[in-house]
């Protein structure tokens, strides 16, 4: 990936995150204030393709966005530059996303 593509992905994921974070926070507030139990929450997420899709996209966007941002910070503050570090950041981004997607899938299949 070159700088232009990284920039485009960073902007694109930022737009997704702007919406997704709001939906995520509102969901948490509703669940907490409404007094939903764990069983009730799982009852809603289980088998729900909508929730699985939403949180998969959210996790992927967060993983990539975080990794690209950390890559810039590491390059500027620690001087970590070059292909090896770039590949490491791709791995870190995808791994972070995988954790989130795995959690979403866990609620889907629970």
């Amino acid at each position: 990936m070159n700088g232009v593509q990284l920039w485009a992905v960073q902007r694109g994921t930022a737009m997704i995150l702007a919406v997704a974070v709001v939906v995520h926070l509102v969901t948490i507030l509703v669940a907490v204030r409404g007094g939903l139990s764990a069983a009730e929450i799982i009852g809603r997420t289980q088998g729900s393709w909508a929730w699985l899709g939403f949180y998969s996209v959210f996790a992927l966007a967060a993983g990539l966005h975080g990794a690209i941002g950390l890559r810039a910070i590491a390059a500027e503050w620690a001087g970590w530059r070059g292909r090896g570090f770039d590949l490491a950041w791709v791995a870190i981004g995808l791994l972070t996303a995988a954790f989130g997607i795995r959690a979403a899938f866990g609620l889907f299949g629970a």
Partner: peptide, 9 residues
């Protein structure tokens, strides 16, 4: 001017 040494930095 594109890339890590250019405007995208």
């Amino acid at each position: 001017v594109a890339g890590d040494a250019g405007c995208h930095a």
